[in-house]
């Protein structure tokens, strides 16, 4: 399966912006299921960690109130060429996703 976490870096002066797109249904589920009578369990991303050179800089707790395939943006200062960003996510089914990108300038 293709990596569901897509990363892009943008340099804005002394700031580095990371754009994160996670391909995930972010389904709030349907507990009552009035029509089908078949409840659908929720499936959504629960946590996200952004590391710069293995140091956690942002730790997020997420919910199904985020859009399907949600896009996130964060910015950082003091990023140098060769620095490595790692973004890890887990969903409420215990699945783990991880993606890395190296800063170029």
């Amino acid at each position: 399966m293709a990596n569901p976490i897509r990363l892009k870096l943008h340099q804005e002066g002394d700031r580095t912006e990371i754009e994160i797109r996670v391909l995930h249904p972010m389904d709030p589920g349907d507990v009552s299921a009035p029509k089908s009578g078949r409840p659908r369990p929720p499936v959504f991303l629960q946590s996200m960690v952004i590391q710069l050179n293995e140091r956690a800089l942002v730790e997020g707790q997420l919910s199904a109130s985020l859009s399907t395939n949600p896009k996130f943006g964060f910015s950082f200062s003091g990023v140098k060429a060769g620095d490595k960003f790692t973004v890890s996510c887990t969903d409420n089914k215990g699945r783990e996703f991880k993606s890395e990108i190296i800063a170029r300038s």
Partner: peptide, 14 residues
């Protein structure tokens, strides 16, 4: 947020 990260973000909500 830890130091080095700007305290802010963009996100898409339902």
């Amino acid at each position: 947020f830890s130091s080095g990260a700007d305290p802010g973000f963009s996100v898409q909500l339902k």
